[in-house]
């Protein structure tokens, strides 16, 4: 049974689950069959059933993880294509991002406290809106649980990607720029790839959202957490 722990087998299986879910989602039109969500759930079920631990999976998984960084660099291209419309509204962009960043951190911290989360968990949730490398860094530095942060970040991205456009509509946000921007702010790169499927323009503004919120969160989260009573 050692073959089940082979890293190439585990990589192939990850692709397989993702592709299978993608196909199923296309055939049935059921949004909940999100390929990221299904691939994660199916893979966890498989690993638990075969009694394989995460560190063993990671020997294969890290080769997929590896592409996350170049993929974030690649977001510079859609960003470049929208530069002229960004320049025209630099003030609305900066102000709305600042508001979104602060509202996001403060709201998740207060809500988690309200629902009775422990200190470690509150800190782990605080940077949940931004992409994994930034979020894990903050969580680690402030005394949170980095793997929990990573999981919550991915879950937030999937949720935001699936429901983001509905929330935008419900909140009476009419401009596609504001819509794309807010999805990227709330649901980082996963939300951005959902926005990219709508249109390149949506996607580009979503990538501005993820970039600016990433920067603001990296700079402000420690201070905001400190003000809320969670200093290092």
């Amino acid at each position: 049974m050692d073959f089940l722990q082979n890293k190439f087998f585990l990589i192939a299986l990850t692709f397989g689950f993702y592709l299978g879910a993608q196909l199923l989602q296309k055939r049935t039109g059921i949004k909940l069959l999100n390929p990221i969500l299904i691939a994660i759930a199916a893979m966890i079920a498989f690993l638990l059933m075969c009694d394989i631990d995460y560190d063993t999976y990671k020997k294969g998984g890290e080769y997929i993880d590896f592409w996350l960084k170049p993929a974030v660099v690649a977001l510079g291209v859609p960003l470049y294509k929208q530069l002229s419309s960004i320049k025209r509204q630099i003030l609305p962009l900066l102000l709305s991002e600042l508001a979104g960043c602060v509202a996001g951190i403060v709201s998740v911290v207060l809500l988690a406290e309200l629902f009775g989360a422990t200190r470690e968990v509150v800190i782990s949730l605080a940077p949940k809106a931004v992409t994994t490398p930034i979020a894990m860094e903050i969580s680690n530095a402030m005394g949170g649980i980095a793997p929990l942060t990573a999981a919550v970040v991915v879950a937030t991205g999937i949720f935001g990607g699936m429901t983001g456009f509905k929330i935008v509509k419900m909140s009476h946000i009419h401009s596609p720029i504001a819509g794309g921007l807010s999805i990227g702010t709330a649901a980082h790169a996963v939300g951005t790839s959902a926005a990219m499927e709508r249109s390149e323009r949506f996607g580009a503004f979503s990538s501005i959202g993820l970039t600016l919120n990433g920067l603001f969160t990296a700079l402000l989260a420690p201070m905001i957490l400190g003000l809320l009573g969670y200093s290092m």
Partner: peptide, 15 residues
């Protein structure tokens, strides 16, 4: 960029 979501799968399995 179009397949960004896939690269998040291993981090999610960390759950």
């Amino acid at each position: 960029v179009h397949n960004l979501g896939f690269f998040f799968v291993p981090a999610g399995i960390g759950l």
